[in-house]
């Protein structure tokens, strides 16, 4: 019998239109909409990923990022384990915006929160407006992970969440499934690496 999954609360941050909701929809429901309607308030979705002998349930919160939803900030950030800060690689502004989001995160978020930066819309890489080096450098400077994603083509999406899990629980071997059987996630059980005694999560 499996143990109950470990709960991980993840919040998404980033300017409106960068693809936060699309990333979540892709990750949770493997779906993408070209004409997604703007988020209203905060939305919640859950998804379980299987790692070797462990299950992790991601409780994912996504907001519209509008000023008027500020009253949600407290509950949004409370007890969050990880934050995904998203920018649109074709929009320089959205990258600059990350600084503001990071500031807010430091103000409201827990101290030990795991931060990942996702450069989304990788499928539009020809019109990339932010040099990858610069994005990586910025990520490093704030101690964040970095990954390029595309909610449209499903590039790197699940990996963002696996990165988070690995960072939080270093004894996990975060390996993406070799092939994705549609809808379900089944991972080949791998021998647990010896050593890693650190209590996970």
């Amino acid at each position: 019998m499996q143990k109950a999954p470990t709960q991980v609360k993840v919040v998404l941050l980033g300017d409106s239109g960068v693809g936060k909701s699309s990333l979540v929809l892709r990750f949770v429901a493997d779906n993408f909409k070209n004409d997604a309607d703007a988020t209203i308030g905060a939305s919640y979705m859950g998804k379980i990923l299987q790692f070797n002998d462990k299950m992790i349930k991601f409780n994912i919160w996504d907001t519209a990022g509008q000023e008027r939803y500020h009253s949600l900030a407290k509950m949004y950030y409370r007890d969050a384990n990880a934050a995904i800060m998203v920018y649109d690689i074709t929009k320089r502004d959205s990258f600059e915006g990350l600084k503001r989001w990071h500031k807010e995160l430091q103000e409201f978020g827990p101290k030990d929160i795991v931060v990942t930066i996702a450069g989304n819309k990788e499928d539009l890489v020809e019109t990339e407006a932010v040099p990858q080096e610069e994005a990586k450098e910025y990520s490093k400077s704030i101690g964040a992970l970095y990954r390029k994603t595309s909610a449209k083509t499903n590039y790197g999406v699940e990996q963002v969440f696996r990165d988070i899990a690995t960072k939080m629980c270093p004894d996990l071997e975060a390996q993406a499934p070799a092939a994705r059987p549609s809808g379900t996630i089944s991972l080949q059980p791998k021998p647990t690496p010896a050593g890693g005694k650190k209590k996970c999560c």
Binding site: S21, L25, N31, S43, Y44, Y69, S71, L72, M75
Partner: peptide
Amino acid sequence: STMSWTPI
């Protein structure tokens, strides 16, 4: 498409 928690 999701569960929402929205101020109104």
